[in-house]
Write a protein that binds this DNA or RNA. Structure first.
Length: 479
RNA sequence: CGAGAUGUAGUGUAACGGUAGCAUCCAUGCUUUGGGAGCAUGUGGUCAGAGUUCAAAUCUCUGCAUCUCGACCA
């Protein structure tokens, strides 16, 4: 991926949303372009966010009985072609290895675009009895999808993700599990990423290639566009039949397994950036920040440096182990340090200078609001913990308010097109056909993001065709 | 892959066919220090190849790359 570099300048959101996004990534030093087109180098600041994602999700997965494993990146081509819809969906974006070891391969190997096929090829040998079920496996991996157009985090040729794959004894259990895992994602986004999402079901045309049903988390970015930020699929017995995943049930009958798969990728970091950041740069929710508090010593003259820095260290120690803190002792002017940490999104800044030491207090500055206040040194731990919690909930509330303000319900085509052009999330009736969905997409560029779980059943008529409809679905332009 | 645009230090920009310059960044030194410091010195560049010309960053051709817009997508 080649492209413009932005150095330290943040392009205002109002000017160009896409450039703003790229400039925030550059300023916070999260990622950079790779010599390979479409790929991205995730730098330490960006990878630290991914490590947080891994930490939190692994904990949640364990609670649900999921075990981590790892499968090869190279998949024999004929495995990929086993499930008809799956091949059709992925064929255009698969990269293939044709030569290795100095010779042409007898059978080409594909670089995994997802791991259903290679996993299920061995799952069939792991499962013999209903007592082996459910099988709950997750892997953290990279995958390759040869996309036409890429953008850091949101869409890259190679990306990191976790993909969970399960086998169950019947369809209801599989469906419930797919829903459960979507719930894990929903909770993760709400509680950690501070991103409010709209959970729901994908329409037929938007569902995963090979799935019976796809559940999704859709989030609204600050430009009003939707981001599909994670998905969970009920695969039915489509793959089980293609890969011969069978077991003996309680009645001693040989039956097919019922499967799910669910994934969350580095795209979620893109969603994090686009949800909270501002014209000063990245804004990290405290629970996703590897550094939650930065202490900047204010040094009026070189002679006072040692004393003030040691005072700053003491404050850092006093915050204890539950708050991650960094003392910035670089040889820079403090003003420059402020800007540096602001663009990196660190939630709280503590300033400590001679006047503060004299008064036995510090200055606390919030990244989300910019609010500055003096805080006495006593009870500083409580004060900081409290501030971090406030920032976490404020970010969520702010994003939720934005989503609510920009979600509208419409009844006719004029209202519909006006709202879509105005970058709203639009709840509208739809006749349920692929043709109507496609014609809406072709005409105005909006797609059905999902049929929200909380969409109530009601009589209505499709905004495009006027045909009868039983519930409203969520339309929006998507990233 | 189709259509259009653009390629000059790390970055951002100048130069009629005639000495490649400015700013920033980086490095060094001094002075500064409660919100992006100042001065001095220094390192570093015409996308690649061919052609036209006394002379090419500039004109022509080819290639490559990037950007914007479409088709694809977690």
């Amino acid at each position: 991926m080649e492209g413009k570099t932005y150095e330290n300048k943040i392009v205002p959101r109002s000017e160009d949303y896409s450039e703003w996004y790229l400039s925030v990534i550059a300023a916070a030093d999260l990622a950079t372009y790779s010599p390979v087109k479409g790929c991205m180098i995730i730098k330490p600041n960006g990878y630290a966010i991914w490590e947080k994602v891994q930490e939190v999700l692994n904990k949640e997965f364990k609670k649900k009985g999921v075990q981590n494993a790892y499968f090869p990146m190279l998949i024999p081509e004929k495995l990929l072609t086993r499930e008809a819809q799956h091949v059709e969906g992925f064929a255009p974006e698969v990269a293939v290895v044709t030569h290795a070891g100095g010779a042409k391969l007898d059978e080409p190997l594909v670089l995994r675009p997802t791991s259903e096929t290679i996993m299920y090829e061995v799952f069939k040998d792991w499962i013999h009895s209903y007592r082996d079920l459910p099988l709950l496996i997750n892997q953290w991996a990279n995958v390759i999808r040869w996309e036409m157009k890429t953008k850091p985090f949101l869409r890259t040729t190679e990306f990191l993700w976790q993909e969970g794959h399960t086998v169950h004894k019947d369809e209801p259990e599989a469906d419930a599990y797919a829903r459960t895992m979507l719930g894990v994602y929903e909770k993760f986004f709400a509680d950690y990423m501070a991103i409010p999402i709209i959970p729901g079901v994908k329409s037929e045309s938007e569902k995963f290639a090979g799935a019976l049903r796809t559940y999704t988390c859709e989030a609204m970015m600050q430009d009003g566009k939707a981001l599909q930020i994670s998905t969970s699929h009920n695969l039915g017995d489509n793959f089980a039949k293609a890969f011969d995943i069978k077991f003996l049930n309680e009645e001693n009958n040989e039956v097919y397994g019922w499967q799910t798969s669910w994934g969350l990728s580095t795209r979620s970091i893109g969603g994090l950036i686009m949800t909270h950041s501002d014209d000063k740069g990245l804004v990290l929710p405290p629970k996703m920040a590897s550094i939650q508090v930065v202490i900047v010593p204010i040094i009026p003259n070189p002679d006072s440096r040692a004393a003030i820095e040691s005072a700053a260290m003491k404050v850092a120690e006093s915050l204890g182990e539950n708050i991650s803190v960094h003392v910035d002792v670089r040889d820079m002017r403090h003003g420059e340090k402020y800007f540096d940490w602001e663009k990196k999104g660190i939630p709280v800044r503590i300033e400590i200078g001679p006047k503060d030491i004299e008064k036995n207090s510090v200055v606390i500055v919030r990244r989300d609001t910019g609010d500055k206040e003096f805080a006495p040194m006593e009870n500083l731990v409580e004060k900081i913990s409290d501030t971090l919690e406030k920032i976490q909930s404020n970010l969520y509330d702010r994003a939720l308010a934005m989503q609510n303000e920009n979600t509208v319900t419409v009844t006719n085509w004029d209202e519909f097109t006006a709202a879509i052009e105005d970058r709203k999330f639009v709840m509208a009736h739809w006749d349920g056909t692929d043709e109507t969905e496609k014609s809406i997409k072709d005409e105005i560029g909006a797609t059905i993001r999902c049929i929200p779980f909380d969409s109530v059943e009601e009589e209505g008529s499709c905004v495009k065709t006027g045909k009868p409809s039983t519930r409203r679905v969520l339309f929006a332009k998507a990233h």
